[in-house]
Design a protein around this nucleic acid. Structure first.
Lengths: 245, 245
DNA sequence: CTGGAACTCCGTACACTGTTCTCCCTTAGT
DNA sequence: ACTAAGGGAGAACAGTGTACGGAGTTCCAG
C-alpha cells in the first residue's frame, strides 16, 4: 500500500490510456477491465473492508500475484474502481429543469448511490482524478450555465453541495448499519444501546436539551432539510449576483 | 474486530462507568485511561491506519494480549478515544455572540480540529455515543435557545452544519496530504499529477467548462463560502419561523 | 532455425493485523 | 493456609499487501 512516484505515473497511465499489449512474452490472460470488474463484484458483495487482492484473484481463477501484472497497487485498483463508478453516473447538466432542480436531483441521486454502494465513501476522496471524474466535474459546472456565475463560483457551489452530501452520507450509512445489525435475539444495535442508556445510565436532568427531544428527524429527513437550506442560501447569492440575468 | 452483544454492553459500561477494581486476583497494573492515552499518542504520532493493539501495548511496556483485560475490542478503544476527544471540545452554547456567531465559530474550530487530528474523521461516525458526546449535543442544541426553534429543529441545524463540515473535511485533508507528499525529487503529488495531465493527456476542448477555470478556490475557501450560504438559508428559516421572537 | 530477451504467471515468504487460548502466578476472602 | 478469582502474556490462527525468484511462453534478431 505504499505510494511511490513510479506507481503514481503507472496509475495515471492506467486511468487515462489503459494497458497496452506486451511486445514480447505470452499474451495477457486477463484485462484491466476484468480485474476491475472482479474487484467491483467482490466489494459489492462483501464491502470495502473485505476487499483483498487474494479474493479478487480467486474470483478470476488466478494467483494473487498475477494481479500485479495489470495493476501496480491496491490503491491504483481502487482509483480505477472509483473512476468506473463515476462514469456510470448521469451527467448532471443534462437533467431537465432549472439549476435548482438539477442540483436537487443530482444530490438526491448521489446520496442514494452512496447508500447502495457504501464502499465508495471510504475510497472516493483519494488523490487520483481520472477521465470520468474530469468529465463529471465539467458537466457539473455547466449546471450553472445561464445563472451568471463564473466557472470558479459554479465549482464552489458544486463542492459545497457535494460536501453536504458526503457529510450526511456517513451519518446515513451509520444509521443503516445500526439498524441492519441484530444480536442473537433479533434486537438492533440502536435498540440495545437505547434501552441500555434509558434503563441504566442516564439520570433525568443531566442532559436537559436532549430531554426536550420528542421526535427527532431521521438522518435522511435531516439531509433534505439541510439541502433546502443550502440551496436557499445559494439562490440568494445567485439572484444578488446577477439580478438581471 | 467483530461486534457481539457482549462487547456492546461491555463497551457501554466502559464509556459510562469505567472499569471497577477486581474483587479477587492481582491488582491492575494499568488503567483504562492509560490505555486510551497510549492509543491517542500512537494515533497522533502515526495516523489512524498505523494504530494497532501491539503498538499501543508496546508503548505501555506490556504484552498485546494484556490490553484485552481493559478493553473488549479495538472498536471499544476507538469509541473511548472519540469520546475523550469530544470531551476536550469547548461547549458550543457558551461561546459569545448571536447563534450565527456561535455556529460559525464552532464550525471553524471543528474543521481545524479535524485537520489537526485527521484520524478522527475515519472513526468519529461509529455507532457508540458516550457521555461526552451526549453533553456536547446537549450544549449544541442550546446554541439556538431564544431563536424560537424547537429542539428537533435545532438538532437538525446542528447536524446540517456538522454534515457540511465533515464533508469538506475529507476534501481538505486529502488536499493537505497531497501537498505534504513528496517524491524523491521533492515534487508534491499535485505537481506530479498536474504536470502529467497538462503535458501528456488532456486535449484542448475535451473539458470546456474546466478550461474556463482560472483561479479555483482552495478547499478551505470553498468551505467558508459553503458555510455562509448554509447559514444564510438557516437564517431565513429562523426569521420566517418566528418573526416576532 | 536458433538463441536470447522480454514478458506472464504464480508459489513462497515477510512483516504485519485483531483476537483467542492456555498457562502461570498474584492476590483477597474464608 | 487454602482456594478460587482473575491479571499478564507467549503462542497460535487466519487474515492482509506485496516483493522476489523461478518456470514457462512468445517474439524478434541474427
Amino acid at each position: 500500500m505504499r505510494t511511490t512516484r513510479e506507481s503514481i505515473e503507472a496509475t495515471l497511465d492506467l486511468l487515462w490510456t489503459g494497458l497496452g499489449r506486451p511486445e514480447r512474452g505470452p499474451c495477457h490472460q486477463l484485462t484491466v477491465e476484468r480485474v476491475v470488474d472482479a474487484a467491483m463484484a467482490t466489494v459489492e458483495a462483501e464491502g470495502a473492508e473485505a476487499l483483498s487482492m487474494r479474493k479478487v484473484a480467486a474470483r478470476l481463477g488466478v494467483g494473487a500475484a498475477t494481479l500485479y501484472t495489470y495493476v501496480p497497487d491496491k490503491a491504483a485498483l481502487l482509483a480505477l474502481m472509483v473512476d468506473e463508478m463515476v462514469g456510470q453516473a448521469a451527467p448532471p447538466h443534462t437533467r431537465p429543469g432549472t439549476w435548482w432542480e438539477k442540483v436537487e436531483a443530482w444530490a438526491r441521486e448521489d446520496l442514494a448511490s452512496y447508500r447502495a454502494h457504501p464502499w465508495l465513501v471510504e475510497v472516493v476522496n483519494g488523490p487520483f482524478a481520472g477521465p470520468n471524474g474530469f468529465a463529471w466535474t465539467d458537466s457539473a459546472i455547466r449546471m450553472f450555465d445561464g445563472t451568471g456565475l463564473s466557472a470558479e463560483e459554479a465549482l464552489a457551489v458544486v463542492e459545497a453541495v457535494d460536501g453536504l452530501v458526503q457529510g450526511h452520507v456517513a451519518k446515513v450509512i451509520a444509521a443503516d448499519r445500526a439498524q441492519r445489525w441484530t444480536d442473537p435475539e433479533g434486537r438492533s444495535f440502536d435498540t440495545v444501546q437505547e434501552s441500555y442508556l434509558l434503563t441504566q445510565r442516564i439520570e433525568v436532568g443531566r442532559f436537559p436539551a436532549i430531554e426536550r427531544l420528542r421526535a427527532p428527524l431521521s438522518p435522511v429527513e435531516t439531509f433534505e432539510q439541510a439541502l433546502s437550506w443550502l440551496l436557499d442560501g445559494i439562490e440568494r447569492r445567485i439572484t444578488e449576483h446577477a439580478p438581471g440575468d
